[in-house]
């Protein structure tokens, strides 16, 4: 690389790593919700872990271009891992159990990544879907361990850090879930703004060219798939720990399908899409199912159809000015940073 190119790259990366005001505001608002909306911590908790789950899908779909219809596999594995660890009192500290659940899911992600790398979009759709279904069936059949179709009963989650009990109002649960999501977001942001993240995007845009310039394409895809699986596992573990319950639904096809919708609403490929999508989707689903408890999926379906017909780009256009503005800001600040 010429010195000029190197400087350019450094400048670009430095610019992307900068925080802009919108991001700060977003997280300040999230932090404020812990104090300002005590009556809504339960649904906010769901939004928070869904956001993390969608973020995990964004890592592979938005950054690496892998379409998955079975991301619930990792979510479910994490959920059951956390549930079993707590139920049999193997690991009592929720935070440690969370980490182990994430590792378990990441391991599964690593193993299955070799299957996913083969073939094109369609094959990937089927393989991911198949893995999720297979896991669901495994959990269903091993009822002595998982409780089968009745769900994992009798999970008691010990207080967080030995101090904060998971209360009925979901206060502890929300602060905990939000904190975990925030930390993992920071990690993802750091990774995606590194040269690794850039190379992923290059591979997504043109795999052949990326390969030609000497990028280790498969290895990077395996790495990001494993990372995303770990994130999904942690999201699942958060679900189990905050509700003290888990069931076969964690593996369901609908969960993977809904997740796609969440990410699409927010827009893929800039990390905030999953988070924004989670907020919008949950509130939409909650209000729709209150208005029409029996027929709300119709409107969700209509939304999906409309999004595609109008064009995803145009639907998520409402976030585009933000992204464009952020991009401009990046470059200017990056330039300033390298000059100084």
């Amino acid at each position: 690389m010429s010195p000029q190119a190197q400087a350019d790259a450094a400048q670009l990366l430095a610019g992307r790593a900068r925080w802009h005001p919108f991001e700060v505001l977003f997280w300040l608002a999230a932090a404020a919700s812990t104090v300002l909306l005590p009556g809504h911590h339960l649904i906010l908790t769901e939004i928070a872990w869904l956001a993390l789950f969608a973020l995990s899908l964004d890592l592979i779909l938005g950054y690496a271009g892998i379409v998955s219809l079975g991301h619930a596999a990792f979510f479910g594995l994490g959920a059951y891992a956390a549930g079993l660890l707590a139920k049999h009192e193997l690991v009592n500290e929720p935070l440690l159990a969370l980490l182990l659940a994430g590792l378990a899911a990441a391991l599964l992600g690593f193993v299955t990544s070799f299957l996913v790398l083969r073939g094109a979009d369609l094959t990937r759709l089927m393989v991911t879907l198949g893995v999720a279904l297979l896991l669901r069936e495994l959990a269903n059949k091993h009822a002595w361990l998982t409780g089968g179709a009745d769900g994992l009963q009798g999970v008691t989650v010990e207080p967080l850090l030995g101090r904060f009990r998971f209360d009925m109002f979901g206060h502890t649960g929300y602060v905990y879930t939000l904190a975990v999501t925030f930390v993992l977001f920071l990690v993802a942001r750091r990774i995606m703004n590194s040269s690794f993240g850039l190379s992923l995007q290059a591979m997504k845009e043109n795999p052949a060219r990326a390969e030609a310039v000497g990028m280790p394409v498969s290895r990077r895809l395996i790495a990001v798939y494993t990372l995303a699986a770990g994130y999904a596992g942690i999201a699942g573990a958060l679900l189990t720990q905050t509700t003290a319950f888990t069931s076969l639904d964690v593996f369901s096809f609908e969960r993977s399908a809904d997740l796609l919708l969440v990410l699409i609403i927010g827009g893929a490929g800039y990390l905030y899409g999953g988070l924004i999508g989670a907020v919008v989707f949950k509130l939409l689903q909650d209000s729709l199912s209150t208005i029409t408890p029996q027929y709300w999926p119709f409107w969700i379906g209509l939304l999906l159809v409309a999004i595609v017909l109008v064009g995803r780009e145009r639907i998520t256009a409402w976030t585009a000015p933000l992204r464009a503005f952020a991009g401009r800001l990046d470059r200017r600040r990056g330039a300033a940073a390298t000059k100084a």
């Binding site: 977003f26 608002a29 919008v280």
Partner: peptide, 18 residues
């Protein structure tokens, strides 16, 4: 934009639930 949408979302939640 982000903030606005979030605030709007939160306001909706507050109206819906209380």
């Amino acid at each position: 934009m982000l903030r606005k949408s979030l605030l709007m979302a939160l306001a909706t939640a507050a109206l819906a639930g209380l």
